[in-house]
Simulated scan of single mutants.
Amino acid sequence: MPGGRLTQQDRRRIAAGLTDGLSYAEIARRLDRPTSTISREVARNGGHGGYRPQQAQQATAQRARRGTPAPPPRAPRAPGTPDGSAEEEIIELAVRSGLPRMTARVHVDLLLSEDGRRTAAELTRRLKVSPASVSVAVNFLVDQGYVRRERDPLRRRDIYVVDDDAWYRSIVLSAQRTLDTARAATATAEKVGLDSPVGQRLSRTGTFLERVIEDMMESADRWRDLLA
């Protein structure tokens, strides 16, 4: 029943939802439970990639038999910082938009940091992952313009920063790459001949992409002051 303990059937449905790529919020809606119940259940039983319903059921039964005390309270969050379930939901949305899960975790951790700054060592410690995983994630984020890299000259280490201009910068980089694709399509169309079906298709594609990107950049420039 809603609000009661999770049953073994509930846990099977959670596992099935994770396999299908559903967000915690969607799984919670289907089970008529709070999103925090689902995120807490998954987090304490192997995490998103390691959740197993049978083991989760057994672990819950063992905790109930030995009367496991409540977990210690979390450290206080900075004012305005989302709670754990909200953070997981943001990560899920980023993954569904195409970001690799580790990259999404790193990006969200940076976004939710009080000053938008972390070192690689801090990210490794906070996310409990290998330095190599963090390196791959931050390199992708820097390449896409979501994050910029600063050098700490005193301690000779990199600091990764999400600043107010990050979203504008990422749009500009994405737009430039799409514009390069549009121009390549137009150039290829001219080579194969604008009177051929292939040439006409590529020409239309190039023109469409170029016009859309021009409109997008005008809009980004017009609203950039909102990030200041």
Rank of each mutant, 00 (worst) to 15 (best):
E88H: 14
G80A: 12
T186S: 14
A70V: 10
A78Q: 11
A104I: 06
L179P: 01
P72F: 04
R77C: 06
E122F: 05
Q144E: 15
L123V: 12
G84Y: 10
A185L: 11
E87D: 09
L141K: 02
A175T: 13
R148I: 13
T119E: 06
R149D: 09
E87G: 05
R117N: 08
L112R: 07
S97F: 02
A94E: 06
V147I: 14
G193E: 13
V136L: 10
R149W: 05
I90D: 00
R169S: 08
Q144D: 13
E89F: 01
V172P: 02
G98S: 07
K128F: 08
A121F: 09
R157S: 04
A166Q: 03
D165H: 05
L99Q: 01
L179N: 02
R126S: 15
G116E: 02
P73I: 07
L93T: 00
S130C: 09
F140D: 12
D152Q: 08
K191Y: 05
P82N: 05
E87V: 14
R177K: 10
G193F: 05
A189E: 04
R101W: 00
T81V: 15
D115E: 10
A184K: 12
T124D: 05
M102N: 03
Q176Y: 07
P73E: 08
G145Q: 08
A184D: 14
T103Y: 01
L154I: 12
S133W: 02
T181F: 05
D163W: 03
A185R: 04
R169T: 10
R177G: 09
E150P: 09
T188W: 06
E92Y: 00
P76W: 04
V95C: 04
A121S: 12
D152P: 05
A137E: 01
L154D: 12
E190L: 14
Q176V: 05
P76S: 10
L179R: 10
L173E: 01
V134P: 01
V129N: 04
S135L: 11
A187D: 15
S174Y: 00
A94F: 04
E190S: 13
D180E: 14
R126D: 12
V134D: 01
S133A: 15
E122T: 13
A121N: 08
Q144K: 13
F140M: 15
T178C: 07
T103F: 00
F140W: 06
P82A: 06
R101H: 04
G84E: 15
V95N: 00
D163T: 06
V136S: 10
L173V: 02
T188K: 13
A166D: 02
L93E: 00
